[in-house]
Design a binder for these strands. Structure first.
Lengths: 146, 146
DNA sequence: CCTAAATGCTACAGCGACTATAGAATCAAG
DNA sequence: CTTGATTCTATAGTCGCTGTAGCATTTAGG
């Protein structure tokens, strides 16, 4: 009952087979037992770990943060504070990104609003991109993609 | 005056030297003239193009969209409508991402709010990641990182 | 029992948008 | 003339996977 194939694990955890093998390769998931023919056999714990990882990824946690959380989870006597700190950091990252995106939204809306049609040579969007490079730029950060 | 090195171009356009060479390698930037010793020599047009690209990237436009915009810009008689459409698409992408991030922000805040300290075994954040995998997950999309 | 489809295995290449490194040549300033 | 900065090419690495090739094994149907 508690021994399942990688395909079954994939379905239960909602993580693709190839991704599971990838997680194993980077040490995120422990190497499982193998059947006589060399196929991976997983127990219930793998489902839990994978669900944990997937949910963390859905929340936008990067891999290294998830690794940290997994380690903390392993050690149930540790104080909750460190976990809280990680979540707090993550929240701040999200809020920072939200601010960036809201600025971006406004600028795009402004570009679109001021464009009244006509030839590209008069296009406000193009000229915004050409000349108005100061309003979001000239930070020395590179903004992550969407 | 109008012939500058890649380093000068880098400073003027705010794009790193290596990135400029990379843009050339993917055909985003035309191959420039070379000095006798083989160094790249750029004119004012390169500054314009690079600023355009950088500002587009800052706005979150992916590379292929920027390529499209550059082509449109090249052709100044074309109607502005296609440019507007691209900007519109981009706005929608940004707004979609904003909705995702706001949901994420709420979930993180909820996690942090319900965590009152104590051992990891009782931690609401960990258990949220463990058990509560349905509220943002079970979409078949993978959310982009921050 | 036999076959065909599904699933599994390893190993490696590719994605996007760069960044970093190595090792050589050239240039500008003191 | 020397030193340090800049530039050159070429290649590998980043992240978080995904896709491919070419096998071996398992499972379901006839």
């Amino acid at each position: 009952m508690n021994q399942m194939s990688i395909g079954q694990l994939s379905k239960q955890a909602g993580v693709k087979v190839t991704t599971i093998r990838y997680y194993e390769s980077i040490g995120l998931l422990a190497e499982p037992e193998r059947s006589q023919s060399g196929r991976r056999l997983y127990g219930q714990k793998a489902v839990q770990t994978l669900s944990f990882v997937r949910h963390g990824r859905d929340l936008g946690f990067p891999m290294n943060v998830i690794k940290r959380l997994l380690n903390l989870q392993q050690d149930p006597d540790q104080n909750c504070e460190s976990v809280n700190n990680i979540a707090q950091e993550q929240l701040e990252e999200v809020q920072k990104r939200l601010r960036q995106l809201r600025a971006l939204e406004e600028e795009l809306q402004r570009m679109i609003r001021t464009c009244k049609g006509g030839a590209v040579s008069d296009c406000k969007i193009i000229s915004t991109l050409n000349d108005h490079g100061e309003c979001l730029s000239d930070r020395h950060e590179r903004v992550s993609p969407l």
